[in-house]
């Protein structure tokens, strides 16, 4: 495993992301990851708080644009996340916290999709009450995003190997 990771670290793209002095390398990719977080997790948290505060819900609310913005955030995070992984593969892949973060993200995205189906399906009846299930999904979503952020920050403090090539 480590030798494979060491090989990945030696690829030109990995070396460039990690070692280029340009701000367009690692710093910019890290920024994109934060921007993606703000779009995906931020808007998801905004919707969760909205659902939890609402007594009735306007079923006619047009959420398609908002969900597109969240999926754009997901795309930015997926691409920047892969780039960060390629830069330091051993740092992430030898740390269980990284897999915990991925699990949190997957579950949070499932919660977004479930909440969309539960609360944002257009209806002729207007307005409707917010269901208990929608509230539960919103609470789960808030907890999952908090877990994602916690795991993401802890990655910097819990890794045991930074570069596989230095671990031999």
């Amino acid at each position: 495993m480590l030798s494979w990771l060491a090989t990945l670290e030696q690829t030109s793209i990995s070396v460039w992301i990690r070692e280029t002095p340009s701000l367009w390398g690692f710093p910019f990719i890290l920024y994109l990851h934060t921007l993606g977080l703000a779009l995906l997790a931020g808007l998801s948290v905004g919707i969760d708080l909205w659902v939890l505060a609402a007594r009735t819900w306007p079923r006619a609310v047009a959420m398609a644009g908002l969900h597109r913005a969240m999926w754009l955030g997901f795309g930015i995070n997926a691409i920047s996340g892969v780039a960060l992984l390629v830069a330091y593969p051993a740092k992430a892949l030898t740390n269980w916290v990284f897999f915990g973060k991925l699990l949190f993200v997957v579950l949070a995205v499932v919660a977004i999709e479930q909440l969309r189906r539960e609360a944002f399906t257009p209806s002729q009846v207007e307005p409707v009450g917010v269901s208990d299930r929608a509230r539960r999904l919103a609470v789960w979503s808030l907890c999952l995003w908090a877990g994602t952020i916690l795991a993401g920050r802890m990655l910097a403090y819990t890794h045991t190997i930074l570069l596989a090539s230095e671990a031999f």
Partner: peptide, 11 residues
């Protein structure tokens, strides 16, 4: 804190 700020203000 940043996520909550970005989410509510962004929305």
């Amino acid at each position: 804190g940043l996520t909550v700020l970005a989410g509510t203000v962004g929305l």
